[in-house]
Design a protein around this nucleic acid. Structure first.
Lengths: 228, 228
DNA sequence: CAACTGTGAATTGTCAGCAAAAGACTAAGT
DNA sequence: ACTTAGTCTTTTGCTGACAATTCACAGTTG
């Protein structure tokens, strides 16, 4: 494809590229949580010098995706089961609010689109013969749409740029709870219904229930000693 | 004071020092929102080379306190009135949740302490002869205590390390609404009462009302055109 | 006189090298 | 055998220099 002439020729800075690459590697599990990052070797394999790499790492530090210890080195952040539970509490608060705002702002057309997504996924799931399965991309898409429909840019950034990245840190190794998929899908149906009703209180309550259930399901699978 | 022997002798890295210094300068208004940061001159005045300064800036980038544009430079983040309003919505969601959790965890002694803070401030305010005044340090202290009492480290970091810094960006230039001080104090009384009752729903509702009122007060003072 | 082009200064982006700290390994001593 | 001291290697922290880009301003042209 020929790029538009109005677009800049030059690509982003090395720091931007490296940041994205690292972010991708971390949330995908390519760089495992807790694993150490060696500047020299990583810089070599990315074909950049240590300067830009260090700056990219600093940015991820600000977003809590990596942790640095003085003169020791950088590690990919590691979430304890307790941290995960705590993050899901934060998510419950924020996405509950997002659903509240979305209920007041979403157009019927947008809600239709959301419902279409819902049924499309239901069909896919039937093909899989009832096997517990909840495709992450569908789930993300469903939630992202509602978050974006909130019309609150700060809320959107807090959730999508910060919180979801941290959550994916965990999701990279532990898959979703087994029996949750079908239940979660029905909760999505409830959410769409609440959004269509336009009732902010109901939308927030239903969304919070949904995320709270996800948290309880996760907590049930965790070693009880690790709850703190 | 003599430092504990178990503490390291060496100070933090230059990046850590510069990060703190910049953060302080930004939230205090010493570096005004929207103002440009020149690496060379700032590095010179801080007596460090550009490397550590750039890394510190990258960290603040990750926290959205500064914004960088390719080959142009770095600016201190600037919040529109709409952004402020949006941030207060996020705060309402998060601190509502913090109050909910705190209601279930705070000991009577902690609540007494909170109440002591409340009345101490009331006395100070009487001395000021009814003049509308809400000391920022008191207000922060009040809210911080509840946030920390939530026992949720992720929630605490989201609020204190991220959100409050962004909010202070704005507070640096526009002071609190005039008539709010007394009302806000009474709302604080309500919050303490709710916490003492141990009822999570009530605690969350009262805290959300409090922050929502603050937002509405701010929105009233803003140019209506800027609400988006 | 307006608009465009070209030149130079200022600023950001990147790199390589040096200094300092931490970690690993060996060897000696109790 | 276990601890301790010493040395060597690896890795991080920091600096200065160079390259690339942007911005400001003057000169030129229509």
């Amino acid at each position: 494809m020929i790029p538009s002439l109005s677009e800049p020729v030059r690509s982003e800075s090395l720091v931007d590229i490296v940041t994205k690459r690292l972010e991708e590697a971390i949330v995908s599990g390519e760089l495992a949580p807790g694993s150490r990052i060696l500047e020299q070797s990583l810089a070599a394999s990315l074909q950049v010098s240590r300067g830009p790499l260090r700056e990219a790492i600093r940015r991820l530090e600000g977003r809590r995706l990596v942790e640095r210890r003085q003169n020791i080195g950088v590690r990919v952040a590691e979430l304890s089961p307790g941290d995960l539970s705590n993050l899901l509490v934060v998510r419950e608060a924020l996405e509950g609010m997002a659903a509240r705002l979305a209920a007041q702002r979403m157009t019927p057309a947008e809600i239709d689109e959301l419902e279409r997504l819902l049924h499309e996924h239901a069909d896919q799931e039937e093909l899989r013969d009832g096997k517990a399965y909840l495709q992450a991309s569908y789930d993300n898409d469903f939630h992202f749409r509602i978050i974006k429909a909130s019309g609150n840019r700060q809320l959107e950034e807090s959730l999508i740029n910060d919180l979801y990245d941290l959550l994916r840190l965990y999701r990279a190794r532990s898959s979703k709870a087994e029996g949750r998929a079908q239940k979660a899908w029905h909760e999505h149906v409830e959410i769409v219904a609440a959004l269509r009703s336009g009732d902010p209180d109901r939308a927030e309550a239903v969304m919070r229930d949904h995320i709270r259930n996800a948290r309880l399901s996760v907590e049930q699978m965790m070693p009880p000693a690790a709850h703190d």
